[in-house]
């Protein structure tokens, strides 16, 4: 077993473990932590494929920014995993989930077995990729030539979302003051008072 295979197996197991524990956790903060673990392991997989840029971006965007926001919201609501998170699911829904999951597993196995994914090299744990796969230059060239319109449209969509968020956080009563925090009956009044002070 060479070093590449070893690294692949370790990071793949960690990624799947993180993903599973994320769902299995009752505590929302720990869920987020397991998701981060899974993302970091995925970044290692990217790096192993030679796509250093994609790996770094995965960590910067997801672990560094989006999941911090998740944590921020969880902490604002002060969820501690002790609240009643709803009743256990009904038997029929539990049965459906179980059957569907099994079906997906079989589908995955079938896809891999029948070679549905066209590939030059035999399907194994490591496949060969293009020389500049995932490099800064390759990604940028595709983004700004072939996919320039979808890319710019996505930018406009994000801008619209930002404007929408700004509009929604404005308090109609007080005009221009910004409020970070949730409804007045939020569980964390101290925090709202702290962050939603006068502008």
């Amino acid at each position: 077993m060479n070093l590449d295979t070893l690294i692949f197996i370790i990071s793949a197991v960690v990624a799947v473990f993180g993903g599973t524990m994320m769902i299995a956790q009752r505590n929302p903060v720990l869920s987020v932590m397991y998701l981060i673990l899974s993302l970091v392991a995925q970044a290692v997989l990217y790096v192993q494929l030679g796509a250093l840029f994609l790996g770094a971006i995965l960590i910067i965007v997801y672990s560094g920014a989006i999941l911090v926001l998740f944590l921020f919201v969880i902490m604002l609501l002060n969820l501690r995993g002790t609240e009643d998170l709803g009743h256990g699911s009904q038997p029929i829904s539990r049965f459906t989930k179980f059957v569907l999951s099994i079906l997906f597993v079989f589908e995955l196995i079938a896809v891999v077995k029948t070679g549905f994914i066209r590939s030059e090299s035999p399907i194994g744990m490591m496949t060969t990729v293009a020389e500049d796969f995932g490099s800064v230059k390759a990604v940028a060239t595709l983004l700004f030539t072939k996919y320039v319109y979808p890319f710019e449209l996505a930018g406009i969509l994000l801008l619209a979302a930002i404007v929408g968020a700004v509009v929604m956080t404005r308090d109609s009563q007080r005009g221009d003051s910004l409020r970070i925090g949730s409804a007045p009956d939020s569980q964390a009044p101290d925090i709202e008072q702290e962050t939603g002070g006068e502008q």
């Binding site: 903060v29 932590m33 981060i36 970044a43 250093l52 840029f53 770094a56 971006i57 960590i59 910067i60 672990s63 560094g64 920014a65 911090v68 944590l71 921020f72 902490m75 490099s135 800064v136």
Partner: peptide, 25 residues
Amino acid sequence: LNIGILFVFAITSLGVYGIVLAGWS
């Protein structure tokens, strides 16, 4: 690394979790 500076920023962006988790826990 040929993306050294991105590595720095990726790692730096993880540092916030220490503080956030400490505060929360």
